[in-house]
Amino acid sequence: MIDQEKTTLDRLPLFNGTSQHESFSSFKEILPTSRMPQSAVPCEFPDGEPISLPPTYEFGGATRSLEGFLSDTDTAALLVLKDGVVRYERYALTGGRNVQWISWSVSKSFVSALVGIAIAEGHIRSVDDAISDYVPVPTGSAYDGVRIKEVLQMSSGARWNEDYHDSSSDVFRLGAAMSDVGTLDAFVAGMVSESRPGTVCRYNSGDTQALGALVVHATKRSLTDYMKERLYEPLGMTSPGYWLIDSVGMEMAFAGLNLTARDFAKLGELYRKDGVWKGKQLVPKAWVKASITPDALHLMPGMPILADHTLPLGYGYQWWIPDGNRNEFSAIGIYNQFVYVDPSRGVVIVKLSSNHAYGTTMTEETNREIETIECLRAISQQFD
């Protein structure tokens, strides 16, 4: 089901310091979307004994108020699972248990799962295949001859600027391709190379859009239909989900998935359990392991590049890997969307937010992503 009689993403006021929670909770009403109905057999997480949040956490050599942080980052949903049981849940602003919230780049991790499933089903031969074996792109363009693995690891070598503070950057141009004067596929086909593939991890939303095109071309299905059958239905999603789409119906693979907090949590729980859900292997175990394992120097914490700086995080197959020895991993989206997983403690935490300061600079002081990880770690440590 597709609704295209709406506005377009490039007309929305983003990264200018204004409040965003009204729109983030209602993108399915204001932007063109495709729809995934709730599962025929919905699966609800059981509720367990409630926990209290820790009053403080440590960051930057200081003790900080956790409640203050949640308020400052305009947190609309906070959901904490321990061993698949809900131990904490709260909503604020325009969030709610049945509210579909925009994922932004959390959707990248869903796309990665779909690539893994498509390989397991034989639609794609291997991550060592060139993505151009499946996706039609011009000879010599950014993705011509580049291995799927390198695209998964944000190491395609494509020239890119993911600066949210610069309205002329590539990520803004990609968003503008959602309008009726362009398409996402055409944008990807027009990208050019900058570095040798597999040598630099440069965060690039264009890479994920190329992966979305890969799934579509390899499976001969839309992302919406393929996800509905391979993830949405078997995971027992309890509410409808929505993908933002361009003028020809192609999904905004890099950032356009809208789900409830509890349904976002199911991807984290699925990966915490090595791809198994209710006894069935939905995502291959080897794919889950590869997805959350930086396997080269340029992917290690401190090496991935975002815009003009490096991040103290590692990178896998469209998943971020915090530094440390707890084997944590996280899907992360702009404005502080998180699906954080701490397997050592059996914990999955979803934080949905609309941090109004996000993108007004490209610094940690406004974007607060590393601080969010420390906040979520403090919550997870409650279960020691």
Rank of each mutant, 00 (worst) to 15 (best):
D207G: 11
P42H: 10
I30K: 15
F172L: 03
Y271W: 11
V339H: 02
T7H: 11
P284C: 09
G316H: 12
D246W: 07
S247E: 15
V339Y: 02
D128V: 01
V181P: 00
V127P: 03
Q100Y: 03
I2W: 05
G333S: 12
E371P: 04
E371T: 06
I131A: 06
F69C: 05
G249A: 07
R262G: 11
E365Y: 01
T310S: 08
R97N: 14
S167N: 03
E162V: 04
S344R: 10
F187V: 05
N325V: 14
D180P: 07
R196Q: 15
N367D: 13
P136N: 09
W243A: 00
I2P: 01
L114D: 12
D72I: 01
Q318G: 02
D74E: 14
E67M: 00
V115W: 03
F172W: 14
A142Q: 05
R262W: 04
L257N: 04
S193K: 15
I332C: 03
H356M: 13
E364W: 15
L299Y: 09
R64Q: 11
T219G: 08
W160A: 02
S126C: 05
G48E: 05
Y340K: 08
E29S: 14
H356T: 11
T360N: 11
K273I: 01
F110R: 00
H356N: 13
I51H: 04
D3I: 08
K351P: 01
P284Q: 07
T63E: 14
F172A: 06
D47M: 10
A177R: 01
L306E: 08
E67W: 00
P294S: 03
A331I: 01
A253M: 09
E233G: 02
A118W: 04
G182S: 15
Q381R: 09
D185T: 10
Y242V: 09
E365H: 00
T361F: 06
V248D: 15
M300D: 05
A290G: 05
F329V: 10
I370Q: 08
G68L: 10
G324Q: 06
I305C: 06
S65N: 07
N16F: 03
F254E: 07
M362E: 15
I30H: 04
V41W: 02
M300Y: 07
A265I: 03
